[in-house]
Design a protein around this nucleic acid. Structure first.
Lengths: 336, 336
DNA sequence: AGCTCGTAATGAAACGATTCATTACTAACT
DNA sequence: AGTTAGTAATGAATCGTTTCATTACGAGCT
């Protein structure tokens, strides 16, 4: 008797299963007397709808899948929060998968979501998966790219202009008079990282005596940042850069830790440091971090809206690509 | 033609649906010839199993629900990661819900998980929900409490001794010679917070001239911490405490930001500060934060193991309560 | 030839909620 | 009284997968 079914409820209330279903789904079609009888039976049996049966019949779930690159990164938690709130307001729920920059894990979550017949998918893709997206679409599962502008007009996307952000960051460092700049970011297969680097190069070119060195860590984490920071700290003073642009704030926090250890390197006096994402901890760092802010929650909620539009697409539906502008936030790590 | 079914596959391969199912679930029962025929049909039609139908038939899903108090808190992201990895290794998946300290959201996630007939639930409860847990158990859904030691022997739980942790933190502050201590933590309805406070009181009692003031913020976030810190910063110097124990690191980070603003209050010279959880950012804060470390990922994976044990419980099954010891981590914020 | 095993494949039943065409009943109107 | 219109309730069919009792077919043996 682990869980009663509509049939049990119907039997106890002395009505048909159809009527129980009506009580659940169109109460206005049911007379008050029957209504209470059924509700009492539901109460008494502790009846809980079986979602699997509902979905099977409906052909679709009321969930939306979200695959993020890194669940430990506050940027993505905020994004997820934005999407969840927006979905909850409309009666949908969001299933979150964490790909950890791993194409295999990404594929496995997409497969899982497909099996669950989710309504649609929000995806911050690891690599290039256009063909997989087309396959999903053919099977009736629309996808919206998040934190990434689609190269292909046939998919909606919500992102931030990473090239502009990278340009903005480096231009800021140059405006402080810094010339020997290091970009820390990787793996380069991550599109966001590549774009930020492209922007950085663009800005560098405008100043004849500026140079950009690239250090490519394994991942965008505090730990990798610490390793990169140590490598720089251990260089002879004359080989150290005078500014660092980190591809995200987690890296920047790690770099900062490593540089400041034992007071070896002064930030920003000796090396100015700027990160990316403007996570909440950026302002609380040893030296409050300058950063490039992205409207994370807004990206999440906007992507969800676009997805829902596409789910209930009219014949003439057009996908759209939303690009938010990044914003420079200057703090102590680039002042001085 | 949005998604083909076993029936379509069977028709194309010229076999029965039962055989297709056998190919999928017991390949050893199928002859090689038929095997390849069916696999080609699956490939050609792009057949993807319908999870709803499988679950309906099986009566149970292969997912586990996890409800956390705060998805933005790295402590819980780490815990979730521990549980997910552990589950993935056994072929299960984890659905994560974020209650945000809100009993309504908690209830809504429990309801959702119940409708989805999850195998079991990992829960870090907001309030007192013993009766709800008993109801879930009666319906065949076992629950393991995480980050909370069960008061009731009938439920398994995995947690850390928060009373000991609170005691440890305050004892450390006292050992530095601090006597006017403020505890910042709330809402007090959160059991972990209450326990840490109990521990703090216990330690205070051992030193005759020590006092403990309690400030209760609305939530355990950086923002609330900042507000609490500002309130303290704005007091006349003689009314300020000489040490603060924050109920978690997010609060501590916020407090630190507020105190250091404009260099008003020196940490740790004027006020020593210790947090709780030892999140990754604690060591990267303006003044590296002392904290009480909890083995977050281990808590998650252990809880999952216990849950799986209970799912496949033998008649003589006994629930267990695992309590990990907290660990003091001393950094600059309490040195000096 | 007749018989028994063993292996492969079959296909109907079941899971539980929803839908919808049908039936049952009332009330209102001519 | 007879017809119609309208509301309530019914219950069989459906979704896609899995299970399992049954059938089909050979091979091997006496």
């Amino acid at each position: 008797m682990l869980s009663a079914s509509v049939k049990d409820v119907a039997a106890l209330a002395g009505v048909s299963v159809g009527t129980v279903s009506n009580v659940l789904n169109r109460p206005e079609k049911v007379s008050p007397a029957v209504m209470t009888k059924v509700q009492m039976a539901i109460e008494k049996l502790g009846f809980v709808r079986n979602d699997a049966a509902r979905q099977l019949r409906a052909g679709m779930s009321h969930s939306i899948g979200l695959v993020v690159l890194d669940a430990a990164n506050p940027f993505f938690t905020d994004l997820a929060r934005g999407a969840e709130d927006s979905a909850a307001a409309k009666g949908f729920s969001v299933l979150v998968g964490n790909s950890s920059d791993d194409e295999r894990r990404e594929a496995s979550y997409l497969g899982l979501f497909e099996q669950q017949r989710v309504l649609g998918i929000l995806l911050s893709p690891v690599g290039d998966i256009l063909s997989r997206l087309e396959q999903l679409r053919r099977r009736g599962i629309p996808t919206v790219l998040v934190d990434r502008v689609s190269d292909n007009a046939s998919f909606s996307s919500v992102g931030v202009d990473n090239v502009a952000g990278g340009e903005m960051a480096v231009r800021h460092l140059l405006s402080l008079g810094r010339r020997r700049i290091v970009f820390v970011g990787g793996p380069s297969s991550i599109r966001q990282v590549a774009d930020r680097l492209t922007g950085a190069r663009k800005a560098i070119k405008e100043v004849f005596d500026a140079t950009l060195e690239v250090i490519e860590p394994d991942s965008l984490t505090v730990l990798s940042g610490r390793a990169a920071g140590e490598a720089i700290r251990n260089r002879p003073v004359e080989e150290r850069p005078d500014a660092i642009f980190a591809a995200n704030d987690l890296l920047a926090v790690g770099i900062l830790q490593a540089l400041m250890l034992m007071g070896t390197v002064q930030v920003p006096q000796e090396i100015a440091l700027i990160g990316y994402d403007d996570i909440e901890f950026a302002s609380a760092a040893v030296v409050p971090l300058s950063s490039i802010r992205q409207p994370s929650a807004l990206i999440g909620s906007t992507a969800l809206e676009l997805l829902l539009q596409e789910v209930s697409a009219e014949p003439g539906f057009k996908t759209s690509r939303v690009v938010f502008p990044p914003e420079l936030v200057v703090r102590a790590s680039t002042r001085g």
